[in-house]
């Protein structure tokens, strides 16, 4: 079965590459998008040099971790962006009459490779931020950084899944749910504590984005030494479970449209 999904990826990549100019322009566009957000952050933080007691370098770590997580999450979860269309044009019927996993059949044919533009920029910024952050890097801390990105990608993936699932229940535009994904990408440029107690609690217990950014950052900068802070990104992975359950519930409510 795995081979089928690999076939999907290659078929999808091939068909995206058929339109070379379009692909290239979109990658460039993603790259520019990421750069403008980075400059927007840079211009503002530059004026103060810090936000609360986090230095500019540490803010940049936050920015690039969230940006990387977002772009990886969206690279794999690209199918969710077009999910309303998949439901509307009968493609979902086709998926359901196949003996494979529904989720994988949604995702693999729609992976969005243009996201490498975003990814590339985030890696570049991370490269700048690592030496500037004032963190004394060790092997363990490097591993934690990778875990933050990995867990972050999963959380963003789950957020895309969550937004897409609402399409089972309504055909209206769900653009306001972008605040969960695009919003989180934008707000994640600062350590989540700057938004105050309430927001931080929400981002700890409801949508666990602070678990992949703020708490491990405290550990990286040695403000906290409890291993719980280093493990927090792993706890964030649990967020995927309710989102998957909700998706499954959505399938049982699926109203196939047309004929």
């Amino acid at each position: 079965m795995m081979r089928v999904y690999l076939d999907f990826i290659s078929a999808n990549l091939k068909s995206q590459m058929q339109y070379k100019l379009s692909f290239l322009l979109t990658v460039v566009g993603q790259f520019i998008t990421a750069f403008t957000s980075w400059f927007g952050l840079y211009f503002v933080v530059q004026r103060v040099g810090a936000i609360d007691d986090f230095t500019q370098g540490q803010v940049t770590i936050c920015f690039s971790v969230i940006m990387l997580s977002f772009s990886i999450g969206e690279l794999f979860g690209g199918g969710f962006a077009v999910f309303a269309r998949i439901l509307g044009n009968g493609e979902f019927d086709r998926i359901l009459i196949r003996p494979g996993s529904v989720l994988l059949q949604v995702l693999f044919p729609h992976m969005d490779f243009t996201r490498i533009g975003l990814l590339l920029q985030a890696v570049l910024v991370l490269g700048i931020a690592i030496p500037k952050s004032g963190i004394t890097w060790t092997g363990a801390k490097a591993a934690l950084l990778c875990l933050m990105i990995l867990s972050g990608s999963v959380v963003f993936f789950a957020l895309f899944l969550l937004s897409a699932t609402f399409s089972f229940f309504t055909t209206q535009s769900l653009q306001f749910l972008d605040i969960l994904t695009y919003g989180a990408r934008s707000f994640g440029r600062y350590p989540f504590c700057v938004y105050g107690e309430t927001v931080l609690k929400f981002l700890t217990f409801v949508i666990p984005l602070a678990l992949v950014q703020y708490y491990p950052l405290l550990y990286l900068t040695e403000r906290k030494t409890s291993p719980l802070y280093a493990l927090s990104p792993a706890i964030a992975l649990l967020f995927l479970a309710p989102c998957l359950a909700f998706f499954r519930f959505g399938i049982s409510r699926y109203k196939s449209t047309g004929s």
Partner: peptide, 15 residues
Amino acid sequence: IGVVFGQRSQLWWDI
């Protein structure tokens, strides 16, 4: 089971 929806293709459009 085998399914054919006359109005919609179950084959992959581009390949």
